[in-house]
Design a binder for these strands. Structure first.
Lengths: 469, 469
DNA sequence: CGATTTGTGTGTATACATTTG
DNA sequence: TCAAATGTATACACACAAATC
């Protein structure tokens, strides 16, 4: 049931009329899915308009609407009012980024780890915890959202970023990704829409897709999402929430300035959006970037779920994040925490608490900042043209503009050369016109030497493929 | 916009016509939600039929269909073709069961813990792990689905239950509840339906509600769900999956016999259902119950997600469960694991692996079985009329029939007397006619003495409120 | 800026399947 | 066994909103 490749000037997709069966809308949806999955329709191909296809198939155009809707919900296509319906890029394949499936030789500049070479620093904290007399009390079902002194340790940690809250507003969960999954499940319904940056955290994109939550891209500048643009989308799109990473947007490294936070807060308040603030990078920003004052949570304490993971600053293998929320979200969030996790390992939470309260956390952060500074300097040496760009000075990753000639195939090319990086298409929401980039992780190579080797390979390959550009 | 209480013989619900605004279907849905949440409509009240209400409001009846559908998806009402539409019991309130929110004096026979008095037995395993030279490698982002030797430890553990699979079919996740959340997210879409026992695991009910997955109750007998009844529901209801706890259904303690497993497998295969097999209780059943042979997974390896948590047999505070699945589910499940957890704490998984491989797990299980036997004997002494009932002989909880005069208010009454138990309404799917029960946890009182005290209070109160019954 | 194209939201008609008596 | 009651599935008409030219 594929399109006829010889008829080009007319519709890009012509399902076989004779194969249509009742119910028509399912039949059409299946045919379209088949042809997209089978590779007969390339990414971003414009499909026939609803009315065109309806005429062609002798159906009412709203029947086509329905067929298209099914495919849209599966992520196979996307529609823009007034503009048309298009085949999604990467419809068939996942954009989930994980540490899995990488051979040992390949230098990983793709997945953003967190300078894992620091992990030895917390071994002694783990030993201290396990040596405590009350350790067996960490092995029971109690305190599903965390033990009080652990929550207080979290508040202590977050106070450095200007966050002020009560322990009863805190829940300990299993990492920031886990916190995001819980937040979507707790506070959003399938079919609702959340505003995000045009390029945003790819795991959030995937999570939203799984929950059937639509993401609406909102333009931004060097200080973050544009309040006017957000307001415009709110007026037009019936938006329920907004997702922001104020301290260092992943992947663009943009930080939201304090003034911008206030302007955004005004719009968020006006439209009563639920704000998801992933502030896991605050440790890199508070006290370092001059303009930093406080998280959005402080401006909108009743509208915000604040997420602060300890994977990046402290240790990635102990799965701990702190969630902070207003009283109005408490019941729903706690119920979702219970339904998804029952509880987070008290052992992990206890070790993280010990690292924080003993002052070790600050030492680890100091070391990671030192490594981040070295890594960023190294990057600037290899890519001096990117050195002056706006963005976070100590980010664990960089956002490198590349030639428009390169598609997302560069990933495969570079992997064959021994480095893994991720192309901007993985982070793109909607149909992007923002140019092409690579996200280059600086925190995953395991040593500055390996990072240097990786960057060298990267530069060599981009120079070559760039050609006369 | 509530109904007029003085007009009783006609429709049970009469929204105020004058308050109707466009869009009508939303307006009607909101009014209905308001009146249910406000308590104006009692549980199981029969609502006007779609056509009745449409006439009354001068709308097309399919507009009412739509309004009712919205409320149904929120779990506020349920509809039965040919029969009518009804207000859901417990529409407004949550049935999530957790360890939270219980004062210290109250004896907990509600939440099913796992004889936490055994936890001291694994402290030495935790110390052994933390003492190992490779411990810092447990603190990184690697191996999101678990380290190979940990998966092999899991397979070793599950081999005792007759499960045979390859390590690549295994993912380590953060407890069996976490596994269920991941499975729903990975393999089901909002709006799909899953067949379950008429009384089933309340946290699964909540999880399904959050994911907007409909649960269809299927009748069963002392050997588990009835295959004919399942087939009938499949024919009628467009069912996508089935959830089973073969080794010991929570809350009923029913075990699925080996013959029944084969009959169910035939139906499941015929209708291509996705089977979710929560077999965390297998350690209580394999080798103990004569009829036990193997899990459903072995009969339907390509249609089953097998979930085996270690909270009950080994330790509840270390959050580990093993998921086993066919190759066809692998990609989707692993992606969901990553999107929900990134990874499970390698420390927790390593300690559990050590407990299994060192043989300590068997000792812990022996001790828990001994305690379970004592606890069940104790229960039989206090409730001799329940002693002969079918069900698991070593279950960590019992399913106690109570007088029909008692509603779910008994929970509150008993709590005031110092014991927490859960009423069958928390476990009920659909509109139950199966009598009233209490689920009495035997594994949470922290000692047999406290359990005995709790059971005594329970018996005294049931006797009294039972009256002449 | 206004007309046109294109997708979305809402209300309706009709055929059908299940339950009940 | 059948007819009536009742919810469900499917297709369509039409008003509207956004994007484009």
């Amino acid at each position: 049931m594929s399109s006829n490749p010889f008829v080009q000037c007319s519709m890009s997709w012509k399902p076989d009329r004779s194969l249509l069966k009742r119910p028509f809308y399912l039949s059409v949806a299946r045919a379209l899915e088949h042809d997209i999955q089978g590779g007969f329709l390339a990414a971003d191909t414009r499909l026939p308009t609803q009315r065109e296809l309806a005429d062609y198939l002798n159906l009412n155009f709203t029947t086509i609407t329905r067929a298209y809707k099914i495919c849209e919900q599966k992520g196979l296509i996307y529609a823009v009012t007034g503009c048309g319906t298009f085949v999604s890029p990467g419809a068939a394949c996942s954009i989930t980024i994980s540490k899995d499936g990488l051979s040992g030789d390949c230098i990983d500049l793709g997945f953003v780890a967190s300078f894992e070479e620091c992990n030895h620093m917390i071994v002694e904290n783990a030993r201290a915890v396990i040596g405590k007399c009350y350790v067996e009390h960490l092995f029971n079902y109690h305190d599903p959202t965390g033990i009080l002194h652990q929550k207080k340790a979290g508040l202590n940690w977050m106070a450095a970023f200007g966050l002020r809250a009560e322990a009863e507003q805190v829940a300990i969960v299993s990492g920031s990704q886990n916190a995001l999954a819980i937040t979507l499940l707790a506070l959003f319904e399938p079919g609702q829409a959340i505003a995000v940056d045009g390029y945003t955290f790819s795991n959030f994109i995937e999570l939203a897709k799984m929950h059937h939550i639509q993401l609406i891209p909102v333009p931004g500048d060097n200080h973050g999402m544009l309040p006017d643009a957000l307001e415009r989308r709110c007026r037009l799109n019936n938006i329920s929430g907004v997702f922001l990473m104020p301290s260092c947007c992943n992947p663009t490294t943009v930080m939201i300035s304090d003034d911008r936070k206030k302007e955004l807060a005004a719009v968020i308040d006006k439209y009563q959006l639920i704000t998801i603030e992933d502030d896991s990078h605050a440790f890199l920003t508070a006290g370092i970037v001059e303009d930093y004052r406080q998280p959005l949570f402080q401006l909108l304490p009743e509208r915000t779920v604040y997420v602060c993971g300890t994977s990046k600053p402290i240790c990635s293998g102990l799965r701990v994040a702190f969630m902070v929320f207003g009283q109005n979200f408490k019941e729903k969030v706690c119920r979702a925490v219970f339904n998804v996790n029952v509880k987070t390992s008290s052992m992990d939470a206890e070790i993280i608490s010990d690292v924080i309260l003993s002052g070790k956390a600050l030492k680890v952060v100091e070391e990671k900042k030192r490594l981040a500074r070295c890594a960023n300097d190294l990057f600037d040496q290899y890519f001096p043209e990117a050195a002056g760009a706006a963005g976070h000075p100590l980010s664990f990753y960089r956002w490198l503009p590349i030639s428009k000639n390169l598609g997302c195939e560069v990933e495969a090319v570079l992997k064959r050369q021994g480095v893994r990086v991720f192309h901007s298409s993985r982070f793109l929401v909607g149909h992007g016109r923002g140019g092409q980039f690579l996200r280059v992780s600086l925190a995953s190579a395991n040593s500055l030497e390996r990072l240097s080797t990786g960057l060298k390979i990267l530069r060599a390959n981009l120079r070559r493929s760039r050609g006369g550009n």
